[in-house]
Design a binder for these strands. Structure first.
Lengths: 242, 242
DNA sequence: TTAAATCATTGGTGCGACCCAATCGTTATA
DNA sequence: TATAACGATTGGGTCGCACCAATGATTTAA
């Protein structure tokens, strides 16, 4: 099975929506879609659920399924598209690929906090990866990442000057598809101001999080300090199935 | 049907996880759970999918289903619990309920941007609701909300001095469970500094978003300017079913 | 004419069956 | 002993059915 049916249906419907093939903003009912795609209603429901979760459509029992007009007008914000959660991918959207300057690369014993976040033992070690990211030459992010040695035993400085997640996908055939993140803001400190070329009144955005591989293994604990103009986090939140 | 089976199972499992009833961090396999709960495997799968989506568990084909240790250690962060997305609910967690001071309450013609965000026509009007929120007396948020008159025709200043979402639930029997939000940060302006008691180097966090009722009707377009210490947005992100 | 009852439409939930695919421990083999 | 093959376990995907619940249009009755 190269790709599940519901994935294909979901992708196809998203295309059709994007291309404006539902001018009435209303999709055919589930039973009809099942016929059209020659799949069961269950698979259609599954595809529609994914789209609803993404905020692309709204379902209304008794009435039908409708396109979220916002998705049409503004679909570049609804970018839950990349197969990857990393910085490289997220910021590539703006047209250019970020470059990486490695500021530091060491092996350290894991702190208590890191042990907790990365499910480590007392005697475990982590790589400390400090990097500066630039977009079109302009620095926009200071990144402090901590990766358990146990998870990537043969990581080198060279690997670290590229995307760590691509390295993981290449060498371990695992993808990084889950993260637990916290977003905050703070006045900039001296280092921020120097590295990110900020004035004292200009703040930084902070994105701090744990990134997991698709099997649940925690890969990295990261703190990102962003030039405030680059902190732009969008999310569609749904509190339904609870 | 007061509550769906998969909802009950999901809630029960979450309780058990929280109470540490799976010390090995491993849940029984799906077929066994189905027997224990006297429900079909489909329903178990559904319940587990919800929990996986919330980051409470990780599923690993061929191995089993495991508790996310982070959820145990830090479950107060995993608070996708409230039935409501509003500010009142979100910040009540910290122990105290925020108070509301209405700074302005008017009816205005909808701007282009509002028409787009709220699916309105050219001649539609919106309420402009400007409010200051305090927690334990300390101001922490300036809120500019825009609500279509069409949606809440008889909204009064009195209603607006409480939670608008509670008003919606009471009068329309609809809940506010979806939102599309963007989070940013900025240096504080004069008004921010005055109302939120900030110094010039201290920034504001900005949460801007559209809130939808459970049937997809957009209810409100809001811009919230937060004292930076109160911007603390956490999310579990999963890029799986795409 | 208006309000209430009815009914068709549409999405929601639940079941159980069937097979697939990844994993892991066991067993057979070199 | 180390490796390979195998098989059991476990979650993933698909199907098709039956029935429920909310909605909205239609029909009926006041």
């Amino acid at each position: 099975m190269l790709e599940a049916i519901y994935i294909k249906v979901q992708a196809d419907l998203k295309q059709k929506i994007y291309r404006g093939e539902f001018p009435s903003m209303k999709l055919p009912d589930e039973r009809t879609l099942a016929e059209q795609y020659h799949v069961s209603r269950s698979s259609i429901k599954r595809a529609l659920n994914v789209l609803a979760q993404q905020g692309v459509i709204f379902k209304k029992r008794g009435s039908g399924t409708f396109v979220n007009p916002l998705y049409l007008k503004n679909q570049d914000i609804f970018r839950y598209n990349g197969s990857n959660l990393g910085v490289t991918d997220s910021f590539r959207i703006h047209g250019e690929t970020p470059t990486i300057e490695v500021l530091d690369f060491q092996v350290l014993p894991a702190t208590k906090e890191q042990q907790l976040a990365l499910f480590l033992n007392e005697d475990d070690f982590v790589y400390w990866i400090k990097r500066l990211r630039r977009l079109a030459g302009k620095p926009f992010m200071i990144e402090n990442g901590y990766v358990p040695i146990r998870v990537l035993p043969s990581l080198t400085q060279k690997d670290v000057s590229g995307s760590v997640y691509e390295y993981v996908e290449r060498t371990k055939k695992r993808s990084v598809t889950k993260s637990f993140m916290t977003i905050m803001a703070e006045p900039s400190n001296n280092e921020d101001q120097t590295l990110l070329e900020l004035s004292p009144t200009e703040p930084v955005g902070i994105m701090e999080g744990i990134f997991f591989m698709d099997d649940g293994t925690p890969l990295e604990y990261t703190t990102m300090r962003l030039h405030y103009q680059y902190l732009h986090y969008s999310a569609f939140v749904s509190l339904d199935g609870e």
